[in-house]
Every structure is written in structure tokens, then in C-alpha cells.
Design a protein around this nucleic acid. Structure first.
Lengths: 227, 227
DNA sequence: GTTGCGGCTTGCGTATACAGAACGCCGCCG
DNA sequence: CGGCGGCGTTCTGTATACGCAAGCCGCAAC
């Protein structure tokens, strides 16, 4: 959304502040940095071999993203991501996706529609091969295509932003082949509703689809870490 | 949302970077700083009698809020808020509000329900008196009460954030008494749907309510400035 | 006349330095 | 023995300095 980064997702290249931000994001998501942990600027600067300035920028960006909390003159701490909060985020993204697919159903151009169908067809061999990484990539494309088909740039940005935020906590991805084919089946049902021009139906199915994915993950979260 | 500031809304006090941020926010919203205007860090630092460091922090925060755009090594410009983009924002907030009221209908506690009814009743004398400022304040409370009644903290934060973003461009508020009573009537219809426990109905009515307010404003925006 | 190259200028990204506020600790007093 | 106040440390907030990358303009060559 707001932050316009170059095409870089690789580290080790580009702005140091971005590298620090990415590293901290990973560590927070991985739980290496526990919730509530104090984030000392000087300390982080030393760790990354940089000065405090880029560390500060990284912290500000993370604060904007909700990963850290900044108290005036008392430094930053890792935001506490309770299981409840993560579930709230899942529900929110599910609702937003539901809105997106409803609007997209009514507004997508024939070109966008064929592009989506093409994408969806492409996912069949991926599921059959059980290629998780490929499916993840496809899945992202699939949903983002829907975002853009709303023809509402702002809404699309919001959806992508929240989705990315959530992805930070999704490293423990589902690696069950079963979930893969179920996901595709759900996509299929959504596609059908879109084809029939029934936005409301597509919306309900999308919401269910997202919540299914969420509850599959929730077990890990519940069992994983209390905070 | 993410940025936790002290209770301060007054300027002239507290962190300099916050003062700069507030000042720039006001100027951008007021149109003093036109869309696309270059934001030179040194220049701004001189204007505010500060150094570049707090200016940078302010710009980063504004970028996170979407008010300015930062291109790497090419400085910042005021984000171009086209009428289309503002309408997109209105539609997005309308959809999110619709989601909120649906969830709230199904989840609100009796206490929250009575609180909302109480609030709604309070708005009648305000409308009759034609007190725009008071209605604005009430309206904010009304909607935020609904957000919180979703019992989804994250969703509530998102709703408030987007609503606040939009408010920056709402200085040309509607000052028509007619709109006031229409707004209250629409609230009334929403309340009725909530009372009947019909979340879908409440959702549709909320969406219509928000879009009504948006189209009322759009004339000003269209007529006002092209960018 | 047009196009490509090279130096110059501007301003961002980062580093370092200084001042003030918050927290902890120790000693003193009740 | 416990509470309170002063002092020191530590870390944030801000200021200043430096290097480099990108844009721009002019000149020269074709």
C-alpha cells in the first residue's frame, strides 16, 4: 500500500532500513522476539551493523504495520499478538475478501473473468502435484486478481495490506495435501457463483473459504505459543 | 491505530515530529499543499525550525497513512487524491461499516444494545436543533459503538483508521439540515434491523446510508478541485 | 539538427554527536 | 524496618555531518 518498495523481496540488497524491517518482521513472526520484548534501538543497531537512524525508521514502519508498539520516550516493544487477535485478523480478512468477490462479480470485465478462469484452471496440476509453494504463489495471484477486479484501488490495497500482515504469521503453513484440494474445491465453488453472476453467493462462499483456512491454522496457533 | 499518541491533540507541545505531522496533515487536507507538490525535507525542516530527522519521521508516518508518497531517493510528494480515489475510499468504508453492523447485530451484548439505543435517542434533539457539530460528534460515537460491538478489535481498528483517513478530506462537511434528518432516519432504519436481529438487513441499510452520505459529498468534491 | 555522454547539482540515506527525560538504585529519614 | 527523595545511568528524541545516487544541463560529435 503506502510503502512503495522496489521489486525486491530478497534481503542483502537495497536500503538497510528495509533489510532491518524485514529481519525484524521475520523474527517477530517466528516468535524469536517474544511479545512484549523491549526493542532497544542501540542494541538493534549493533546487531545489524548499522546506526540507530535506519533502525528507527524500521521500527516506525513496523509500528505502522502493527507489529510493534511505540510508547513515547519509552521505546518500542513487540506488539502482543494473542491468538484472539490473530483470529480477529483472519475474520477481518475473510470479510474483506467476501466484499471484494461480491463487487468483483458485478464489475469484472470479460478479460478479467477469463484471466481468473485461466488462473483457476492452472491450479489443478499444482494440486495434483502437491506443490505447496507453487500453490501458495497461485493462491496469492488468484485472490489479488479478485481484489483488482473490484475496480476499487483503495479496497484492493487494503486487502493486500491486511493479507500481507497476516502472512507474517503464516510461516507455519499448512502442509497437508488434503487442505490443498479442499482449497481448490472451494475456489471452484466460488468460480461457479461468479460465473452465474451471483455476487452474494460468491461472497458467502469466499467467507467460508477464508474461515476454513483460518481454522485449519488456528490449531497451530493455539498449540504453539500463548502470546 | 498503530500510532499511540498521548492524549495531545494540541500542537505546540510534545514531540516535534508529531507537531510537523499534524501541521502537514492539516495543510494537505486543507489543500494548502496541492496534490503532487514536492516535499523537500530540508525545506520543511527550515519552515518548522527543526532538523531533517523529525521531518523524515513525520513524512514516514504520513506515508503510512497514505497522505504522501515516498519514492526512493526521489523525495516525497503529496499523494494525489483524485475524486475517483476518494469515492473508492467512501465505498470501502461503506462496505466495512456494513460488515461491522452485521457482525455487531449477531454479537452485541444487551448492554451494548441499550447503549446504542440510548445514543440513537440522544440524536433526536440534536437533529431538531440543527446542531451540526454535535451531530458530527454523536455520529462518530454511534458508528464507533457499532465497531466495538463486533467484538473484533482488529476490525474495529481498521474501521476507525479508514474513517479517520477519510475525515481528513471531509472539511467541507455537509451543512444541510435536510441531510441531518435523513441521516437520522437512516440510522433509525438500521436500528430497527438490529432490533429484529436481521444482520443482513442492517448491513444493506448501513451500506446505503454510507453511500448516501458519500454521494452528497461527492458534488463538492467534483466541483471543488480536479486533483 | 539531433543524440549521446559527462560533469554538476540537488537532496536522500546513513552515521555520529548531543541534550533531555524516564527508570532504577542507593542512602536517608521517619 | 519501610517509605521517600536525590542521583546516576540509560535510552530516546533531535541536531548535524558526510557520501552517494539520480536528475539535469550543456557540449560535442555525427
Amino acid at each position: 500500500m503506502a510503502n512503495v518498495f522496489e521489486g525486491e523481496d530478497d534481503d542483502d540488497r537495497g536500503l538497510i532500513s528495509d533489510r532491518i524491517r524485514n529481519a525484524l518482521t521475520d523474527e517477530i513472526a517466528a516468535g524469536t522476539l517474544a511479545a512484549g520484548a523491549a526493542l532497544d534501538e542501540q542494541q538493534l543497531a549493533d546487531r545489524f551493523g548499522a546506526s540507530r537512524t535506519p533502525v528507527r525508521e524500521a521500527l516506525r514502519q513496523l509500528a505502522a504495520g502493527g507489529l510493534v508498539e511505540l510508547r513515547a520516550r519509552r521505546g518500542g516493544i513487540v506488539a502482543s499478538m494473542t491468538p484472539e487477535r490473530i483470529m480477529d485478523m483472519f475474520e477481518t480478512v475473510a470479510e474483506i475478501e467476501a466484499v471484494c468477490v461480491r463487487l468483483a462479480t458485478y464489475r469484472m470485465t470479460p478479460l478479467e473473468r477469463s484471466r481468473l478462469i485461466e488462473l483457476h484452471d492452472l491450479s489443478r496440476p499444482i494440486v495434483e502435484a502437491g506443490d505447496f509453494d507453487a500453490y501458495d504463489s497461485f493462491n496469492r495471484q488468484f485472490h489479488e486478481t479478485i481484489y483488482h477486479a473490484t475496480h476499487n484501488g483503495f479496497l484492493a490495497e487494503q486487502a493486500i495490506t491486511i493479507r500481507n500482515r497476516l502472512n507474517a504469521f503464516r510461516r507455519t503453513q499448512l502442509r497437508q495435501g488434503e487442505r490443498l484440494s479442499r482449497s481448490r474445491d472451494e475456489h471452484d465453488a466460488i468460480m461457479q457463483a461468479i460465473a452465474e453472476g451471483d455476487g452474494e453467493m460468491a461472497s458467502r462462499r469466499m467467507r467460508a473459504h477464508m474461515l476454513n483456512a483460518a481454522t485449519s491454522l488456528s490449531r497451530f496457533i493455539e498449540a504453539g505459543k500463548p502470546a
